[in-house]
């Protein structure tokens, strides 16, 4: 087993340095090395979307990216959305539309939605349902999540 590798990356706009083993996923690095537990593990095999992060502008399942792969690149996690001024419009819309129940899938849905609405705030229901097809929610039946994303899109136009 090779030793730990030094990685330098930008996470939520901050310059971050860490050591990680080659076998550690980005999800494991975020949660266990950097203590950023807002990104959730649901399946660890790319089928639930709970660990969605934005990686150089694209949404990815962080369980399918290795920690060493983010060397010199940019990652946005759920911890990077709210600012000192308040919540991100998507976060606010999830609250106001009761779009979370247990909340475990919520960070993944919010980050994935940001990946859509940043470029397409006018996305309609069909587009949103397609975009979020990689994120599983077992509590809501998706109804209120889709409504929250529609609502957030209105505010982000």
């Amino acid at each position: 087993m090779p030793g730990p590798t030094h990685v330098q990356a930008t996470i939520n706009g901050e310059d971050v340095n860490f050591l990680c083993e080659p076998r550690q996923s980005l999800l494991e690095v975020l949660r266990d090395v950097l203590g950023m537990t807002g990104t959730k593990e649901g399946c660890n095999d790319g089928n639930c979307g709970a660990c969605t992060v934005i990686f150089d502008g694209r949404i990815v399942d962080s369980c399918l990216v290795l920690g060493v792969e983010i060397q010199g690149r940019e990652v946005t996690t759920i911890e990077g959305l709210a600012t000192a001024d308040g919540l991100h419009p998507i976060q606010q819309a999830f609250l106001e539309n009761a779009a979370l129940q247990c909340g475990i899938c919520t960070p993944g849905f919010i980050v994935a939605s940001k990946g859509l609405l940043d470029g397409e705030p006018g996305a309609d229901e069909g587009r949103i349902r397609h975009w979020l097809a990689g994120n599983l929610c077992r509590c809501t039946g998706y109804d209120k999540i889709v409504r929250a994303v529609l609502d957030a899109g209105e505010k982000m136009k």
């Binding site: 999830f94 609250l95 919010i110």
Partner: peptide, 8 residues
């Protein structure tokens, strides 16, 4: 508990 759950 809403805010805690949307900010991670």
């Amino acid at each position: 508990d809403g805010v805690d759950k949307v900010i991670g």
